[in-house]
Write a protein that binds this DNA or RNA. Sequence first.
RNA 1: GGCGCUAUCGUCUAACGGUUAGGACAGAGCCCUCUCAAGGCUUAAAUACGGGUUCGAUUCCCGUUAGCGCUACCA
Length: 488
Amino acid sequence: MIGTSALRPGILVFSMLRVRFAPSPTGFLHIGSARTFIFNWLYARHNGGAMILRIDDTDVERNTEASLTSIFEGLNWLGLEWDELYRQSDRLALHRQAAEAIFAKGLAYRDFTPATGDEGEKSRASGPWLFHSNMRELAVEESDRRAAAGEPFVLRFRVPRESRPNVTFADAVYGDQSKATVDIEDFALLRSNGAPTYHLASCSDDADLRINFIIRGQDHLSNTFKHVLIFEALGMEPPRFGHLPLLVAPDGAKLSKRRHGPVVSVTTYRDYGFLPHAYVNFLCLLGWSPKDNREQLSRRELIDAFTLEGVNRGNAVVNFSEEDPIDPKALWLNSQHLRTMPVDELAPLVRAELDAAGLGVPYDEAGFRSAVDAIRSRFFTIKDFAIRGRAYFADDFPIDPGALDKLDKPGAREMLRELSARLEANPEFTERSVEADLRKLAEERGVKAGLLINGARAALTGQPVGPSAFAVFAAIGRDRAIARLGKV
RNA sequence: GGCGCUAUCGUCUAACGGUUAGGACAGAGCCCUCUCAAGGCUUAAAUACGGGUUCGAUUCCCGUUAGCGCUACCA
């Protein structure tokens, strides 16, 4: 039976919230899709509901295994989890049964019009396409006869234009929606090869899986009128709906791989060095707001604050450009999380990044964490630890031109070597005692302490900028610091 | 073309009839300072347009314009 299994209203009126995310595996995980998952997930977690992941893979032409892998990879990376998993291709029999049930009730008819391949073009040019009247009114006997003779047909929904003036539903984000049935065409349920269309497969699965709240992109808002009709034809109360504004490019166009390239793929942000949660946080702020000026929110705070009332209706622009492919706010948010999250949580991520970069960790765990803690305050991504922070983890590191300038200041190299010698005689090597040695030397030579301080940073890290030089000494450690200063 | 949806600083957004239209990112300047960040302070920056309704409209209604979506035997 189609979707009627556990659906006696009297019994399940207070049933648990069930939401779903239903991607079709035709490409990598799109950031807009990721956000749709996140909003569903947040809504489920906020309300104690179940999050269902359903792979809508009925389009065999375009589905790929690689895409499916990419979706799981992306979701896993973001740290998002689901409670139930289904594959639409396992459920084809169900879709057929649904189609048959609708047909048996007389709510659909066979359309034997041969496909010409340019239906869309024609309808756009010559006004609204509604139905082929000769097919809609075809006598049952003839329809049966032609079907029995093996003539291919499309099964179309018979939109009840005579019996009801319009289809309505209340959208949790966009408010009451209404559309005249005379503006809804007789859409296809089954293709001539017997395969279900998206509308049929999606609705019959939603019905069968007892999805009671559909949260999805606004590009489905107009489709929803058809879906309400399908649910009703299936003898079901339609679920509640909440549509989400779309993520668009700076030129206003819907984000697409073709036009906008890698900025639409979540893997791009992973590979760029984003923290999973920071990116989730960023996505949440596109089209939703906690309304209290908070920007940086933890996972828990997101779940607590999330409501559909907080979702707004205008499309949100992801702010990227040729020169700057990453939205600056995303980067800022990432830096905020990077700098404030517990070091214990950050350390493993940094370690993995160093591993990937082929760098070792010349510290014990405590030393590693304090080094990470010392340098993270001016980093933006995880990648920075292996690149800008390389000198903290390896002895072979490039000398930045800016750092070279500092070392080439008159007398700088000689004084740094002298400092190296003096530090060797300094058994304490605390930040304070190193500072004392350095300042004393500067005073003796009659130069500003800044000359040696900046020179030391340059010598120790190869960078003209970075944390307080004395913190650098502490992070690099006595032996390596003395060695590096001695070799300038 | 038809139908639907949307419209506040460059960008993300707050203000559910009464605010000097708020915050954040990005920008500019200053302070701090051993550099760079961070932080603090300051600054520039918006209600698409036109009509209503109202004592009063960012907010409600209508129109215009613009954008987006749907209009497939794609999802």
